[in-house]
């Protein structure tokens, strides 16, 4: 079974985000970019399926700017076999919406015929939490989102999902889409020899136009603003003082 993993290049999760003074967006020039953390978990899940014999090949796909090559190389160094870069923007500030990404991924799925797609639950830049579900809709496939455990057997995936009240287990017929949550695994680091080897693994370049997908956004950004700030209050010296302050404030 072939597994397809979409990976997004996003601002590194440790970087303090700066809103541009003109309100047009967030400043992404010269900041550290990394693979979306949930996508590292998705790549790791695919590698483990391959190691267990449930998967035979792992193809990673990224949609965006040329620089997403680096993200794909990271996935190849972790253990993916092949990469596809779909160029859909020139400017690092233009984010491709989940609907357009899902439409492109649907075409890639049509070409590659994977038995399973494992995406991340959420991109930590736009915080949309949408692409996997949208791709499942476009393909008419079943979906198992927010996965913390995945087992593949008999043409089905049994997936435990992190939901509001705890955990839910569902079974979904393959091919299907799974989206990875934080507890699915701990992704490995790529070793230096594997980073070297990844440079020779195939990375194919396509464009959104090759797939005939219009990536014009449906949502236009009116403005981007800093959230209302919160200033530090006071330090209390003791539990007694804390209790007194909370009583004064009517909080307890």
């Amino acid at each position: 079974m072939k597994v397809l993993v979409p990976v997004k290049r996003v601002i590194d999760y440790n970087v303090k985000v700066r809103v541009k003074a003109d309100g047009s967006g967030v400043d992404l020039a010269n900041v550290k970019m990394s693979m979306n953390p949930f996508d590292e978990i998705a790549v790791e899940a695919a590698i483990r399926l391959k190691e267990s014999g449930a998967a035979s090949e792992i193809v990673v796909v990224s949609v965006g700017v040329k620089q997403a090559q680096e993200t794909l190389r990271t996935a190849l160094a972790m253990g993916a076999d092949r990469a596809i870069l779909v160029l859909a923007a020139d400017d690092v500030h233009s984010d491709i919406e989940p609907l357009a990404v899902a439409k492109i991924l649907a075409k890639v799925v049509a070409d590659e015929a994977p038995g399973l797609v494992i995406a991340g639950k959420q991109a930590i830049d736009n915080d949309m939490n949408a692409t996997g579900q949208m791709l499942a809709a476009l393909l008419g496939w079943g979906q198992a989102t927010f996965a913390s455990d995945v087992a593949i057997a008999d043409g089905k995936a049994t997936v435990t999902r992190e939901v509001d009240g705890g955990l839910q287990t569902i079974s979904v017929a393959l091919p299907a889409i799974i989206t990875a949550d934080l507890r699915l695994n701990e992704p490995r680091y790529a070793s230096l020899p594997n980073i070297m080897k990844a440079k020779k693994k195939p990375l194919e370049e396509k464009t959104a136009a090759d797939y005939g997908v219009d990536v014009t956004p449906r949502l236009s950004v009116v403005k981007t603003a800093e959230p209302a700030g919160r200033s530090a209050g006071i330090k209390v010296a003791s539990v007694d003082e804390l209790v007194a302050k909370l009583k004064d404030a009517g909080a307890i």
């Binding site: 967030v26 736009n126 915080d127 800093e226």
Partner: peptide, 11 residues
């Protein structure tokens, strides 16, 4: 967006 580090108004 960005873990609440920015608030975006979209149409």
């Amino acid at each position: 967006i960005y873990a609440g580090n920015a608030i975006q108004t979209v149409k």
